[in-house]
Write a protein that binds this DNA or RNA. Structure first.
Lengths: 246, 246
DNA sequence: CACGTTCTACCATTGAATGGAAGGAGTCCG
DNA sequence: CGGACTCCTTCCATTCAATGGTAGAACGTG
């Protein structure tokens, strides 16, 4: 009953509070937040109040906690992600207008593709990718495009630990995919994520030819026009890469 | 030389670290960060290391500090702002395609408009608004659109404290603008932000008819087509509002 | 109206946070 | 080449900020 009985620092706790929000949930009751963050109610209450005084959280009436507008502002205006997005947006819009379908932009984080931007029309097919959402490398065209252009060491490390929970895919299959992708310069995945959709992605390389992102589209399975699609994506990827400094 | 000689809590310090990044700057040296956050170097170092262990910051080689991908992810996937953005994007794209000019979306925070989204074409005119950037209420069409639909109390409070640093605008002028905007249902501002541009904005109301955002365009001063523009914006604003739950 | 639930406030205890100092690591320049 | 400089990193004795059980307030509910 003293300074942190559980042995975690204040920083740990602040992080846990921010992490306590499940994906897509914008609002949480104080009690539930404390529960999810694994904090005593009184401690959670104190932390939330302190954070909300700075605007990082919004403490609504009745103990409703939301992420603060100020936090959104600070993170978005200073995040390296914004530069990538800004460079990519015009090209993504061009592609979207031509294809009239989903376009998305992802970066690699761990063994997952993290989606940074997504444009979708009202009429376009289902697309599992959500902004700030993730998908495992091995079942997303963007993920495979990213991984296939990483260093040999990272790829080995990835394949070594690889295990498909559903048991449908083996490391060897993924290895094959990655090799093919590295050689071809693009990835196509038909009916994997959704039975009726078809995903194509290409790597986006910065000035130093390091792969920093993947640009992809999701189109109906029927609409298979690789010859037209891939060059369009690759051209856009080059255009984006040219604007990325580091 | 004890627990916080300066009398601020750990939470205060964490906030100061995150706030230390100036607008648009994504990368900071540790020493500079410590300086900007007003922290002793060793304290800053400890905090940054702790935060980077959780992925909220990225600690690069040579003491380079950036905001972490994980922080971007957490904030964007759980922020109320994302829901607004998602609802607005299709409409914003429609408008952009028709006008071929800048479209932006803002919310009110304090006495400023905070820009949540912005679409701009390569060829379009200059636009001061940056994503996650701010503009004072009285010189932005979005800001005026937002303020003109707030409660009478908030408007009074705003006008009471109003003072234009440049001395060009008086509270009475702003009062007049707000009244006109409230009556007309839109705001137009010609050559205020930039001499050659013209801004038009309309309020976006949620299901309960509370004004939660402003939708606006920035077009060249020459292209004055109010009759076509305003209805288009208002229609889009209704469409967005219909999708906003709370 | 009594009971359950959730938020808010209080305050004695104590170990986590603090920051100066010293030790690396790298860079610049005469 | 070596001295001076800058910046990052680590260490550790000191001490006050953080902690969380407890109690009470504010609702909502059957």
């Amino acid at each position: 009953m003293a300074n942190s009985a559980s042995g975690d620092s204040v920083v740990d706790r602040v992080v846990r509070v921010i992490e306590a929000f499940p994906e897509g949930v914008t609002s949480l009751q104080l009690t539930e937040l404390a529960d999810r963050a694994g904090l005593p109610l009184s401690s959670a209450h104190r932390l939330v109040r302190q954070l909300s005084e700075h605007g990082l959280l919004d403490l609504g009436a009745g103990g409703t906690v939301r992420l603060g507008l100020r936090l959104w502002e600070l993170v978005n205006r200073n995040s390296p992600t914004l530069a990538l997005r800004q460079a990519a947006m015009p090209f993504m819009e061009d592609i979207q207008q031509v294809l009239n379908q989903n376009v998305n932009l992802a970066v690699l984080d761990g063994w997952e593709a993290l989606f940074v931007e997504r444009l979708s029309r009202r009429g376009s097919v289902a697309n599992r990718a959500r902004i700030a959402g993730r998908m495992p490398v091995h079942i997303s065209s963007a993920g495979l495009a990213l991984m296939s252009h990483q260093s040999r060491e990272l790829q080995s490390e990835y394949l070594e630990q690889f295990q498909d929970p559903s048991g449908k895919v083996t490391a060897d299959v993924v290895r094959h995919f990655l090799a093919e992708a590295a050689q071809q310069g693009f990835v196509q995945l038909a009916g994997v994520v959704d039975p009726d959709t078809w995903g194509i992605a290409v790597p986006v390389m910065n000035a130093k030819r390091r792969t920093v992102a993947a640009l992809g589209v999701v189109v109906p399975l029927a609409e298979m026009r690789l010859q037209a699609l891939v060059p369009a994506l690759q051209t856009a990827a080059r255009g984006i890469g040219r604007q990325l400094g580091d």
